[in-house]
């Protein structure tokens, strides 16, 4: 059963931008696209740990600010020639608020 927790207002995340949620095991980046979809991904690029939340968001992708690896926000997988990926977490919007799945975040903590 899903247990959705409210992390903040959609308006607090800029369009084509991201904000960070801190968890006991590192940060999760919550992205908002130009179409107002939200996606939650691990914040650390598998290449050199770059903070993905600081990257440029384009379409449903984000470019890591350190060395320009591009990741799909939908799958967490690196695009193009680069190989790797980050974990993704369920996220949704309801009445202008953004929710993450608490069970998933806890599973993450338990890992």
């Amino acid at each position: 059963m899903s247990d959705w927790i409210d992390i903040g207002a959609l308006g607090d995340i800029p369009q084509r931008g991201a904000r960070v949620v801190k968890t006991p095991l590192g940060c999760v980046a919550v992205f908002r696209t130009i179409l107002d979809e939200v996606f939650a991904l691990d914040n650390a690029c598998p290449h050199k740990g770059g903070p993905l939340a600081e990257g440029i968001v384009h379409g449903s992708s984000v470019t890591c600010p350190l060395h320009n690896w591009v990741f799909s926000l939908e799958t967490g997988q690196a695009q193009g020639a680069d190989d790797g990926g980050v974990a993704t977490y369920p996220a949704r919007i309801d009445a202008g608020r953004v929710y993450l799945d608490a069970n998933f975040l806890q599973m993450r903590a338990a890992e």
């Binding site: 903040g8 904000r19 960070v20 801190k22 006991p24 940060c27 919550v30 953004v98 975040l105 903590a109």
Partner: peptide
Amino acid sequence: PIADFKLEA
């Protein structure tokens, strides 16, 4: 951060 679950945990 938009939210901080570190403290709660």
